[in-house]
Each structure stands twice: as structure tokens, then as C-alpha cells.
Design a protein around this nucleic acid. Structure first.
Lengths: 119, 119
DNA sequence: CAAACGTATGAATGATTGTTCATATATTAC
DNA sequence: GTAATATATGAACAATCATTCATACGTTTG
């Protein structure tokens, strides 16, 4: 309590200034949590496949299921996750629901990820 | 086997052409899997915090642990994951190992993710 | 109205995963 | 050499998650 600097374990490797600077630049915990949640949505090959399928065209649930060789239920569950993450958006037309990419961030993020893979 | 087009369940919503086009544009399954794996690495708040900490400075394991209030073991385990995903790289100096961001893709991807969050 | 179709959802299950604890490895200091 | 320090790692446990199955909801058709 007497120190005006960060508590340390006695074997701090870098300067206290660096630690303080790092801490001051860190976004709020909530933001970091939300960011991890976003990436978690991308972190499943089924969802990635769904997103890629929607790169080309607006598709309904059964199209996606058949296209990727998945059950309708599995696709619906994953679309729910993608929708909650605001990565896809639905458009209802009769009994059919067409899904499309929510915005260009999806394309950009996936493209950036692909760049990293292909290095 | 007689059809030259994609098998369907009889309730296909969109044109066969669209389905074929989507399928032809899809990357290989292995790529999609790798991409999901990459995003999975970003999809944890502890790892996001570690990456953010490394935005500002090269840090050793114990610095990160103390900075984020985590055990040394937990940090080491997560650094292993980050290293396997080629998101951070180590530099050994005596008994100390300093970690830094592997390349600019990390910054770019996180920045893009943040943009999506802040909409 | 009833039947059929497209989609959504709840429960159950098997698999994956992050953390903790104990311990091993590697380097430095004495 | 031994002791101390910094990091890595393996096993175990709890928590999270993706899929499957059954079924419910909402819409269209007859």
C-alpha cells in the first residue's frame, strides 16, 4: 500500500515503466472479453464453412446443410451463433429463411486470417 | 450417379448454378480447418490479453503473469498455444524468455475485430 | 380445417479446452 | 558441485461446446 507502483513478485524482468505503460494501454476487460467472444465464433470449421458459402450468395438453411453435408439442425444451431455474433443476418421469405453476411468485416477478417495461414 | 449436378434433397431453394458456384469457390477443407484453428487461438480472453500486452512491449513470462494476474503456469501454457499458431515468438536470454508479437497480422486482425465490436 | 414443409430449439452426449498443481528442464550464482 | 530462478510440461478436473435426436413453431397449400 506504500508503493505507488505495481505490485511485483521480486523477479520482475522489465522496467516498471514498461509495465505501467502496458497496463495503461490495455482496453477494458469487457472489451477484451467481447473480442475473444467474436473470434470464438470464427473458431469453428463448420461456421467458417458456412461463412465462406455465404461469400458467394445468399442461401437458405437447407441449401447450406446440403452444400456442406450437414444436418439441418446442426446448421440452424450454428447460424444462431453466427447471428448472435452479428456475422450473418436473416431474411425471411415465406417458410424459407435466407442468410447472408452481415457486413464486410466478415470478409475482411477471414481474408486477413487466410493471409496469415498462407505465409 | 446419372446426374451431372449436385445431389439434392428435393427442397433446394436456390438455383443449382448458385450451389455449383459456391462449391467451386470454396477453399480446400484443410485450409478451412486451419483458418478455424487460427481464430480459435484468438478466441480466448486470456490469450487476447497476452497479445494486447505484447502490443506495447516485449515481455517475459513472469511479467505477463503478474501484469494480468495469472499464474506462471497458465501463461506458459497459453504462450505455447500462441507460439504454435505463430502469433508470438520467443527470444531467450539466459533463463528468461521474452515474447513478442510474431508479425503485423496479429495487430491487424485484432484491430479488425475491435472495429466489428465497436459498431 | 389438416397436411406438408422449412426452420428453430431443448435435452443429452461425447469431445475439446483452460486452469491448477506438481514436477521437470535449463540457466545462473555461489 | 549445490541452490535458486525462469520457464515448460504432464495429469487431472471443471467447464464449454458441437452435434444428434426429437419435437415445436410458423407458413403455405389443399
Amino acid at each position: 500500500m506504500a508503493d505507488n507502483d505495481i505490485e511485483r513478485c521480486g523477479f520482475l524482468c522489465v522496467h516498471e515503466k514498461t509495465v505501467e505503460q502496458v497496463l495503461s494501454q490495455m482496453p477494458e476487460d469487457e472489451k477484451l472479453y467481447d473480442l475473444a467472444e467474436l473470434f470464438k465464433v470464427f473458431g469453428d470449421s463448420t461456421r467458417i464453412k458456412i461463412l465462406y458459402a455465404l461469400f458467394e450468395a445468399e442461401l437458405c438453411v437447407c441449401d447450406i446443410a446440403q452444400l456442406l453435408g450437414l444436418t439441418q439442425s446442426a446448421v440452424s444451431h450454428q447460424l444462431r451463433v453466427l447471428k448472435a455474433g452479428r456475422l450473418v443476418k436473416p431474411r425471411k421469405d415465406g417458410k424459407t429463411v435466407f442468410y447472408s453476411l452481415a457486413d464486410d468485416h466478415v470478409r475482411t477478417l477471414i481474408a486477413q486470417g487466410m493471409e496469415h495461414i498462407n505465409e
